[in-house]
């Protein structure tokens, strides 16, 4: 049985089902990260001492740049499909994956440096919330990479069958990816600079 409203819009919502679905998913993600940001505020305001200069600011700033550029390449990948240029889509999508992988490699070195200084999550309240927030965000990056690799590999077959549906899927992937970028835009100043 064919899934309805994957390309055409529903008359009542004016949207394809996937579009509304991804936005509702992102709403639940806002709640997830919102709860953790709220926890951060409780811990920070309730603590008499809060460490500064514990994290590598240049590495954090480089990771911010990587995610911003990856957001640009992601939207260009979707735009390429809209312009029926599958070759450019592959190029931009692969660039997004590479940038995301570099982000994770940087994060690995950052974690190693932090742990090397004898600061596991159990060392302090700051370390606990730092590892929780950045770890959860890192898992989202990993999830995004898996989805993007799928659409570069086996999932790309859909382009030949129903290009509009494939373009919509890339749009939903992009919405998720921009959300992940948006979360980092707030995480970077909150954890690294303040």
């Amino acid at each position: 049985m064919e899934i309805p409203y994957t390309v055409e819009t529903r008359p009542d919502t004016g949207l394809a089902n996937g579009k509304l679905g991804i936005w509702l998913f992102l709403a639940s993600e806002v709640m997830l990260f919102g709860a953790l940001f709220s926890t951060y505020i409780i811990l920070r305001t309730g603590s008499s001492v809060w460490p500064h200069g514990q994290l590598n600011v240049p590495l954090g700033a480089i990771n911010t740049v990587l995610l911003i550029v990856s957001s640009v390449t992601m939207v260009l990948a979707w735009a390429s499909l809209k312009m029926k240029d599958f070759g450019k889509f592959k190029l931009y999508q692969a660039a997004t994956v590479v940038l995301a992988l570099i982000f994770l490699v940087n994060k690995f070195f950052e974690y190693r440096e932090h742990l090397g200084h004898g600061k596991p999550p159990s060392a302090s309240t700051f370390d606990a919330i730092y590892f929780t927030l950045t770890g959860l965000h890192g898992l989202h990056i990993l999830g995004g990479i898996v989805v993007m690799l799928y659409f570069l590999g086996p999932g790309a077959k859909l382009w030949k069958k129903t290009p509009e549906q494939f373009t919509n899927r890339i749009e939903y992937t992009g919405l998720y990816w921009h959300f992940v970028d948006l979360v980092w835009i707030f995480l970077f100043p909150v954890l690294y600079l303040l």
Partner: peptide, 10 residues
């Protein structure tokens, strides 16, 4: 609305 409720928990 949900986010503001969460932020006001502290």
């Amino acid at each position: 609305i949900g986010f503001l409720v969460l932020m006001s928990v502290p």
